[in-house]
Design a binder for these strands. Structure first.
Lengths: 339, 339
DNA sequence: AGCCCGATTGGGATCGTTTTCATAGGGAGT
DNA sequence: ACTCCCTATGAAAACGATCCCAATCGGGCT
């Protein structure tokens, strides 16, 4: 090995006085190595600052050591919603922890879909984490056909048969929120939903419904769609105040919408929580702690979700058995001042 | 080639009736190949749906086909500031366009720095795009020592000798903004700065100073630090209203801060733009178009900046000559209603 | 002593490319 | 007709890991 070249396994083996094969076994923590060999190789590795060559390894193991993280979302939301930034960050971290490279793909247009298809089919990654909540998302049908391990974030639309996913307990969280409002003695509770082409929004709605013990017809009178945006939340809240003038509590299906709803309520002269109690969803700290008053919210731990997704995916990639295809993460209520 | 295995170059060559070497030459668009061979190979490639094996290629070319995109930013900002989401997205897109994988690294803690160092030194990527605007950022000194092509976004702190970077014309943009306010006949113009441990903030300040034609002492009386956050902008604005009660215009060094400043002004009963004209910086559409009133702002095109960074980096990676180490992108004024 | 067995080990093939080097095949120039 | 060169080609050697397979080495039994 020349002075400037990076050391290879050969160099390590030479230094440790063993063969390449043995050195390799140490690196892959095979049990069939003597303690002395193990020590010698370990020492050589750290003395030389050896780092395995990914490409060489990938070539022979037929694994790339990279996974794709795919966000399928019509253009603009990725900018506005801090939720995405958080998920991306969680992904970067969780994957780095298991020493896997993350290939980030943001899919907006049909063009992007085609590109994603080519890439995923091209064997450039060992698996994929897919964030595609919307109904009729072409990407999901594309990905389903691929012979590639995939773990979804939340339920994608369509049949779930055979899909691996990690979901938050949206329904349970909604029940928690609603029951909390009821336990405060609130009688007229309304609900700002997310876009109903996302199952997370639907699940939250159905949690609300069941905690209220009402049917579809009754529920329609108590809800409005806020589209998971701040503006939308504001608008939906205004709408609900017109529809249900005597409302005294609202469960809003996301913190971002709740921030909008709070503004609408306050502009209408309502005091929070005296006149109207408000509960959000996400417990997105950057939002919930800075609203006026601070927002009571249902906590879903996205970091945790992504971590589970990664762990799950790595099992699939290594063809280890997984206990269950679908994991459900609990949600909890975080009380602040708005309810 | 078996039925399910991905085709290799060997398969392509066989089908085209040439040797592996010739097929390879076609793929790398070498000039030394006959038209017939070219056509035959091209046809075979598309018939078989061949995609080169990255690992094999990486192994022999000693290039990974991946670059790191590194953000060095104390924890929380990455969530709040939509600017980051935009940069990340621009990076993902620009790199996908040149068929290079992006490895996203978010560096917050010293631990992260160590990890980044190991990774970058480990030869896992061909180069890096570095976003590290702050003073005394350890990461920059680490990265500088690495024998790795690097392109910075904006000027990192410290000596620029030998560094490659793509910067926005912050100073020019600030001049544009300030002169626009003067041309409206405003007499008492103040400035909300970004954190002065970032050179972009300093450059904007110095543009303001030179357009106002005043010295450091005078400038101190007309400025306050808003830290590039919304809350900070609000606070700085309040401070300035106390310091300069008769102010009739403000140039705010970012749109996010401008949103906060607008709130502060309006709560103090000022009409925009009648009483106080406001100009922001960034032209971050998601913000500037939705403030009340819509915000006049200095446009810097981050997508373009990232694209240039990628192009620049790829030249370095391929060891092609670059005309100039430092590129400066123009900024323009976008008029809306706030000034 | 002779044999077997399990535990370690090393040799060498292999993964799919790129790239060097040698060679074949023509046309141009004398 | 013979050389000279230039172009297009193919054979084969890398690149740096993993892993199959055979070989070695003791130790425990018979």
């Amino acid at each position: 090995m020349s002075i400037h070249a990076r050391p290879t396994l050969e160099d390590v083996a030479a230094r440790a006085g063993v063969s390449r094969a043995t050195a390799s076994r140490v690196l892959n923590s095979s049990p069939r190595v003597s303690p002395e060999a193990l020590e010698a190789v370990t020492a050589a590795v750290s003395e030389l600052g050896y780092q395995p060559n990914r490409a060489a390894r990938a070539l022979v193991t037929r694994r790339t050591g990279a996974v794709a993280v795919v966000f399928s979302e019509p253009e603009p939301k990725i900018f506005d919603d801090p939720h995405f930034a958080r998920l991306i960050r969680a992904g970067a971290r969780a994957l780095a922890d298991v020493d896997v490279q993350m290939v980030l793909m943001l899919v907006h247009s049909p063009d992007d879909q085609a590109r994603a298809h080519r890439f995923l089919a091209g064997g450039h990654v060992d698996g994929a984490l897919v964030f595609a909540p919307h109904q009729n998302d072409q990407l999901v049908s594309i990905v389903k056909k691929l012979p590639l391990p995939v773990v979804y974030a939340g339920k994608p639309w369509g049949p779930l048969r055979g899909l691996h996913l990690v979901d938050n307990d949206n329904e349970g969280g909604a029940v928690l929120a609603t029951e909390h409002l009821r336990s405060l003695g609130r009688k007229k509770i309304v609900h700002v939903t997310g876009p109903l082409d996302e199952l997370s929004a639907i699940d939250r709605l159905s949690g609300f419904k069941s905690a209220m013990g009402i049917d579809d017809k009754a529920v329609a009178k108590l809800t409005a769609d806020g589209g998971f945006t701040k503006q939308g939340g504001r608008k939906a809240m205004t709408e609900l105040m017109a529809k249900v003038p005597d409302l005294d509590a609202v469960f809003v299906a996301s913190d971002l919408m709740a921030a909008g709803a709070l503004e609408a309520l306050q502009e209408a002269g309502k005091r929070i929580p005296e006149d109207v109690a408000v509960v959000g969803f996400d417990d997105h700290v950057a939002i919930a702690e800075h609203t006026e008053p601070p927002l009571t919210s249902v906590r879903q731990d996205s970091d945790q979700q992504v971590k589970h997704m990664v762990a799950h995916l790595m099992k699939l990639v290594r063809e280890e058995p997984v206990k269950q295809k679908r994991e459900m993460l609990p949600t909890t209520l975080v009380r602040r001042e708005s309810a």
